[in-house]
Amino acid sequence: MASHDAHTGRLPGLFTSPDTSSFTEFLGAYSPELLPGRRSLPAGVSAGEDIPHGTTIVAVTFPGGVVMAGDRRATAGNVIAQRDIEKVFRADEFSAIAIAGTAGLGIEMVRLFQVELEHYEKREGRTLSIEGKANRLATMVRQNLGLAMQGLAVVPLFAGFDEERSGGRIFSYDPAGGRYEEREFHAIGSGSVFARGALKKLFRGDLPAEDAALVCVQALYDAADDDSATGGPDLTRGIFPVVASVTAEGFRRLGEDEVGAVARAVVEERYNSPGGPSAPLR
């Protein structure tokens, strides 16, 4: 549908009604079929395994902010659907979003969320608070509940730099739209149990930014080690996890060469110790 009146070319009345600063709400009124949650599947059918799923995401806070990382694999059943998919994105200048679950719907949700934040900022002349952003995302996840019940769940992980507290914060979600603030670190997706075990042993409160990135890559390696749906660093093809940090300076995605160096070092180290760094016993 064209976004202006096809006959006159002018803005339809809806565009100039001052009711809401939410892009999603406006789209719901103007062109509801564009919203992922408004689509219905045939009853009694479960779309499951055959649609590509994204897998493991980790996030770690450190004194100056938060680092988020995701592996690059998407699986459809036992098949690797994509080996270089990207699941970690810039949400706005001070936040990052990553997705696990149905890849197609997840990427659509990310796109919508990015526009949502920017739209609010442009209309209101101020950015949402970090809680505001997290709540907005919860609403979007909740709108997807119907599809989630039919096997198309999307679960995001949201992390950002809180300018008021000047520190990193992490929010996780459940498919019903439940929003939970996580302390220190978190992992989601099929390999998250293994990643979380690794994070528990590797996390400490005084990590410098580059070590926080290293902790993420280590945790993803451990997830890939035990979960077939999570991809490890692919040295032969040069495919490495996507790692992004959010600090007072804003969102920054680490360059391929930076992540490549970290990933190569991790793999190299594992030749000596396949289980990764060992934590002190007492």
Binding site: L11, F15, T16, F23, F26, L27, S31, H119
Partner: peptide
């Protein structure tokens, strides 16, 4: 405000 909506809707679609 209408222009922001117009731009964001088109950029999204």
């Amino acid at each position: 405000l209408g222009g922001v909506r117009y731009a964001d809707v088109n950029g999204y679609q």
